[in-house]
C-alpha cells in the first residue's frame, strides 16, 4: 500500500464513482505516504464522509467509523468491560466453586472486553481506514484524549496491559465547523477543504451517480442548484441533495424541469421552512436563470 502512486489514487476514486478535483486525490495520496491523519472540512453534504468510504473501498480494507457527539468519552471510543456478562459469568461459576484468582483472570480477559472503534482499529489484522466523523461535535476533553492516541498508537488497559497497534490505521477526521478545533489537533493533520463543486463537476457527479438521468434534465438540475446556492439560505443544499433530487425526478420519469414539479419537489432539496418560503418567492427568477420559464410561458 505504501508504494501507491498519485495516478492510481485518481483512477481508484474515479472507479468508485467519486468525482473530485486534484486536491482530493492529492490529500489522500499524501496522507497515506506521510502516514498522517487527514482533516477534512467543508459545508454539509459535499462528500466528506464519502472520501473515507471510497478510500477504504479502493484500498480493499475495512472502514471503522467513530461517530462523534456531545458527551462522547473514552469508554465509547476505546473499550469497555462487558459488565453484565461478567456478572452473569460470576453467578454461574459461583455454584462450581472455582478459585477467586482464576475467576478474576477469566472475567478480565478479551472475552469480556467490548472493543470500541479506536481499539478495533488498532488491533485490526489489516491496516484499516478509521473515520472519525464530525469531530467538532465532541467535547474538548475528547479531542485532547484523541491527540494522545494519535501520537502513541497504543492503548493501556490496566487489567490486561498495553496493546500497541499492529498497523497504524489511516485516519480521516471530518468536521462541519460547528466548533473551532484546537490548534494542536490541526497541526497533527493534513488539511483539506472541500467546497461546493462548480457546474461541470456537479454535472459529472450527477451523471455518475444517477446514470439514467436525461442529459437535459441533469444540466437543468445543476444550473438550478448553482443559482439556488447563490441565494442567501439558512441551510445551503449540498451535493447529496442534488443527487437525491435527480433520483426523485428520474423516478417520476421527467426529462426536463418545469415550475410545478420544482415547487412540488422542493422539499427534497431544502430542509428549512424559511428557505422554502424564500425560494418559492424567488422561484420564477431562479427558473428564468435556469432557462425553464420560456418553455412554459
Amino acid at each position: 500500500m505504501k508504494d501507491i502512486e498519485l495516478g492510481q489514487i485518481q483512477k481508484m476514486l474515479h472507479q468508485q464513482g467519486y468525482i473530485g478535483d486534484g486536491s482530493i486525490a492529492m490529500s489522500i495520496f499524501l496522507a497515506m505516504k506521510l502516514e498522517k491523519p487527514l482533516l477534512i472540512e467543508g459545508p454539509a453534504g459535499v462528500g466528506k464522509t464519502e472520501v473515507a468510504k471510497v478510500m477504504a473501498k479502493a484500498l480493499h480494507t475495512d472502514l471503522i467509523r467513530l461517530q462523534c457527539y456531545e458527551g462522547l468519552d473514552s469508554t465509547h471510543a476505546l473499550y469497555e468491560w462487558n459488565y453484565q456478562h461478567q456478572l452473569l459469568y460470576l453467578k454461574m461459576q459461583e455454584e462450581k466453586g472455582q478459585n477467586a484468582k482464576a475467576l478474576e483472570e477469566t472475567i478480565f480477559s478479551e472475552r469480556f472486553l467490548l472493543k470500541r472503534p479506536i481499539l478495533q482499529a488498532i488491533t485490526h489484522s489489516k491496516k484499516p481506514v478509521l473515520l472519525i466523523d464530525e469531530i467538532d461535535r465532541s467535547d474538548e476533553e475528547f479531542e485532547s484524549f484523541l491527540l494522545e492516541v494519535l501520537s502513541d498508537w497504543q492503548v493501556t488497559i490496566p487489567e490486561i496491559g498495553t496493546i500497541s497497534a499492529t498497523h497504524k490505521p489511516q485516519i480521516i477526521l471530518t468536521g462541519n465547523r460547528t466548533r473551532e478545533l484546537s490548534e494542536a489537533l490541526r497541526r497533527r493533520c493534513l488539511y483539506l477543504w472541500i467546497d461546493y463543486p462548480d457546474f461541470e463537476k456537479e454535472l459529472a457527479i450527477v451523471k455518475t451517480k444517477v446514470p439514467e438521468v436525461d442529459a437535459k434534465l441533469g444540466q437543468q438540475i445543476c444550473v438550478f442548484m448553482k443559482e439556488l446556492r447563490q441565494l442567501k439560505l439558512e441551510k445551503t443544499p449540498g451535493i447529496s441533495e442534488t443527487i437525491d433530487w435527480a433520483r426523485a425526478l428520474v423516478s417520476m420519469h421527467l426529462t426536463h424541469l418545469d415550475k410545478q414539479t420544482v415547487e412540488d419537489t422542493l422539499g427534497v432539496v431544502l430542509k428549512d421552512w424559511q428557505d422554502m418560503r424564500h425560494t418559492r418567492d424567488a422561484l420564477s427568477e431562479l427558473l428564468e436563470k435556469t432557462g425553464v420559464v420560456s418553455r412554459i410561458g
Binding site: 498519485l6 486534484g22 486536491s23 492529492m26 490529500s27 499524501l30 506521510l34 472540512e41 465547523r177 490548534e183 490541526r186 497541526r187 493533520c189 493534513l190 488539511y191 483539506l192 477543504w193
Partner: peptide, 18 residues
Amino acid sequence: KEFKEALKIVLSKNQYQF
C-alpha cells in the same frame, strides 16, 4: 499544479488558510 496542491494540503491548517 500538483506541486502547489501538495504544499497547500501540508501547510494550511484551516479553511481560511486553505
